[in-house]
């Protein structure tokens, strides 16, 4: 069917939203609460557009296209309303961009820049300063929360943990855990998917200090299990400072606690970087060649003295399929035992 956006006619598929149609047409519509993976909620009201023949503006994220619909995405009325909505949002947001971890990657900051909002002109009460830092991996700072609901919906619709929800009403509303007992006492599994979707600095990972513009991204596969989640390592200099789930991959923008947060071993001082061989009751660093020779020697001795069934092998979910295959081959064909198993079966 055909619709007219800002005076140009576009051909669009049935059952698309105006937002999707605009995206396909290369027209940028601001959104703070939209996520293609989730049901639309239309809470932020930034994606409002004018559809000729309707009294109020409509949210493009939740309005389906209709034949010959005439849409204005950036006319005077729309821009004025968007500016005022942004003004209202930023008026109740601490202007701590200088010290906020999210600076440079914050949608509220970006839109205020785009729409020319210097600072909030509405002076008055501010959000209640509630901070939940009970989770070991991330913090919630309610002062910065814009109540887009993305975290709540990700946790409910995609992570299916339902650990967080809204508490209180109106101006007092907050993201919270049941009975306000803190994230650590909730059903939260620390997957961090809420942290990944938060458009502002309300949910932030604990730890590293970096500026987004100082980093580059390296796409890799999570090595913790066989699912093969794709992720982008956020790298500053030679150090990994954060992990972001890849959207365009099988994991569809999701990770688990290990993929999201368990990367700090990489630069950890205790990390083993060479094999160790125990000599005179003490572990000493060795080369891989030394280590292999040592293993072959010992294994041959044991096999001769006690037989192949004195061996058992346990392999790891952190290895690839190919590595696991080779490991069992080593045990069955070289050592000659069927005592071989895998941690995923335990």
């Amino acid at each position: 069917m055909n619709i007219i956006i800002n005076g140009t006619t576009y051909e669009v598929e049935k059952n698309t939203t105006i937002l999707q149609a605009c995206k396909n047409a290369g027209i940028d519509i601001p959104t703070l609460c939209h996520d293609e993976r989730l049901k639309p909620t239309s809470a932020c009201r930034l994606c409002l557009v004018e559809v000729e023949g309707t009294k109020n503006l409509v949210t493009s994220c939740s309005t389906m296209v209709k034949e010959n619909m005439v849409v204005h995405t950036h006319n005077e009325k729309v821009m004025k309303t968007r500016r005022d909505v942004l003004n209202l949002a930023i008026s109740n947001h601490p202007l701590e961009c200088l010290s906020c971890d999210k600076s440079g990657d914050c949608k509220l900051q970006d839109y205020c820049y785009e729409y020319g909002i210097l600072n909030g002109t509405y002076k008055g009460a501010m959000r209640t300063p509630k901070i939940d830092s009970s989770n070991p991996f991330y913090d919630y700072d309610a002062r910065k929360c814009i109540l887009c609901g993305l975290c709540v919906r990700v946790c409910d619709e995609l992570q299916c943990s339902n650990a967080i929800g809204f508490e209180d009403r109106g101006f007092e509303a907050n993201v919270s855990t049941p009975f306000n007992e803190g994230l650590i006492n909730s059903k939260c599994v620390s997957c961090g998917n809420c942290v990944s979707v938060c458009p502002v600095g309300a949910l932030t990972p604990k730890g590293q200090k970096f500026r987004h513009w100082e980093t580059s991204k390296v796409r890799t596969t999570c090595s913790y299990c066989g699912v093969g989640c794709q992720m982008d390592l956020v790298v500053k200099g030679k150090k990994i400072v954060d992990v972001e789930p890849a959207m365009d991959a099988i994991n569809n923008g999701l990770l688990c606690v290990k993929g999201k947060f368990a990367y700090k071993f990489i630069n950890h001082p205790d990390r083993l970087k060479t094999p160790l061989i125990k000599r005179n009751g003490k572990f000493e660093e060795a080369t891989w060649d030394e280590a292999y020779r040592y293993i072959t020697k010992k294994a041959t001795e044991i096999k001769e003295n006690y037989g192949p069934n004195s061996f058992a092998g346990l392999t790891s979910a952190r290895c690839t399929n190919e590595e696991n295959y080779l490991f069992q081959k080593l045990f069955r064909a070289v050592i000659g035992t069927n005592n071989i198993d895998h941690c995923a079966r335990l």
Binding site: C44, R45, A89, S91, A125, L147, G170, A173
Partner: peptide
């Protein structure tokens, strides 16, 4: 209205409060 706003959307949650102030 400020008391009864559910808090979901920005104009109502923030706007009515500013008006009341």
């Amino acid at each position: 209205t400020v008391d009864e706003s559910c808090g979901k959307c920005i104009p109502c949650r923030e706007g009515t409060k500013r008006m009341l102030e």
